[in-house]
Simulated assay, not measured.
Amino acid sequence: MKKVSGLQIGHSSIKDKDFKIECDVINDKNVEVPFSHRHYFYAIYWIHEGNGMHIIDFEEYEMRPDRVFFIKPEQVHFMQIEGSLKYSALQFTEDFMIPINSKVEKEIPVYIDIDKNEKSRIEILFNQIQKESVSRLPNSTVIIRSEINTLLLDLERMAMPISNFSILPDLLCKYREMIDKNFIKERQVQFYATQLGVCPNYMNVLTRKFLGKSALELINERTVLEIKRMLLRSDFTISEIAYRLGFNELSYFSRFFRLKTGMTPQKFRDSMNKMYQ
């Protein structure tokens, strides 16, 4: 199976742009490559016609009309298309959005099913972004950034009734953000609690109340996810992956992964390669 550690805008191995939009494409390999891969950018996929499964970070989600998927950088994903799939795709980097000081990581879930009214709003935004992308008019890039930000805010608002992310305390959101940035070097709740000015017990109270998990489980889950990503989409050996993720002993690395997943790293790699080849 083809191994790709990460792809840039347009699914190229070389970064040559920070933004791209394609509307109403059908099974276009220049928009979505036919194998599992990791992005270095954000992507919004709006399904119009067709079916299949969208595998995102090893979880399967049904693809169906008027379902909108939100993919973040570093996530591994793959579209298993059944026959023909018609969709629109918007891709952009975090750097592209920096000039408007917009936080891309809004509380948007993996997917949202949109109704008739929501579809009309998204359709307008996609069309405006697409027209600006080819207009070559003054300030078109500034307008595109603004419209993407409006789309993200709209998706966040659409998700609020069905998602509990919008009610998470700020402290818990910061905890998850810190884990994402530091989990390779820091895997103790004490470190994060100290940085946030609270005690580990209070952090546990928050995570159990709002997420149903211990504070340590969140760290371990992020670690396991990164191990899975590297096992699937890199040519590193098991030992190299363990070293890169801060494990000093290969035996401990293997025990940790087996305890969390029920299989050895090599067995997981073999099964995923067979599934996604």
Results as ranks from 00 to 15, higher is better:
residue 228 K to R: 12
residue 40 Y to I: 03
residue 144 I to H: 03
residue 262 G to Y: 09
residue 74 E to D: 09
residue 240 E to A: 14
residue 231 L to V: 10
residue 67 R to V: 15
residue 145 R to H: 09
residue 131 K to E: 10
residue 271 S to H: 04
residue 274 K to E: 10
residue 34 P to D: 07
residue 19 F to T: 04
residue 52 G to K: 06
residue 63 M to D: 02
residue 99 P to R: 13
residue 154 D to A: 04
residue 78 F to A: 01
residue 147 E to A: 03
residue 159 A to V: 02
residue 166 S to L: 06
residue 214 S to V: 04
residue 19 F to N: 08
residue 243 Y to R: 14
residue 70 F to I: 10
residue 1 M to V: 07
residue 251 S to N: 11
residue 75 Q to S: 02
residue 134 V to I: 13
residue 65 P to Q: 10
residue 209 K to N: 07
residue 7 L to N: 05
residue 220 N to W: 12
residue 84 S to G: 01
residue 11 H to G: 01
residue 233 R to C: 14
residue 185 K to M: 12
residue 193 A to Y: 01
residue 242 A to K: 06
residue 63 M to T: 11
residue 50 G to R: 06
residue 145 R to W: 06
residue 100 I to P: 14
residue 104 V to T: 14
residue 113 D to Y: 00
residue 252 Y to R: 10
residue 130 Q to L: 01
residue 176 R to K: 15
residue 251 S to G: 00
residue 33 V to K: 14
residue 251 S to Y: 07
residue 202 Y to C: 08
residue 226 E to V: 08
residue 151 L to D: 06
residue 97 M to H: 08
residue 3 K to W: 01
residue 11 H to C: 12
residue 2 K to S: 10
residue 277 Q to R: 01
residue 91 Q to P: 07
residue 222 R to S: 13
residue 7 L to T: 05
residue 186 E to A: 03
residue 263 M to N: 07
residue 55 I to H: 14
residue 221 E to A: 14
residue 92 F to E: 08
residue 69 F to H: 11
residue 217 E to Q: 11
residue 267 K to G: 03
residue 170 D to C: 06
residue 184 I to H: 07
residue 170 D to V: 11
residue 132 E to Q: 08
residue 12 S to Q: 07
residue 172 L to C: 09
residue 89 A to E: 05
residue 63 M to P: 04
residue 99 P to I: 15
residue 213 K to R: 14
residue 20 K to R: 09
residue 147 E to M: 12
residue 149 N to Q: 10
residue 109 P to G: 06
residue 133 S to N: 07
residue 175 Y to V: 05
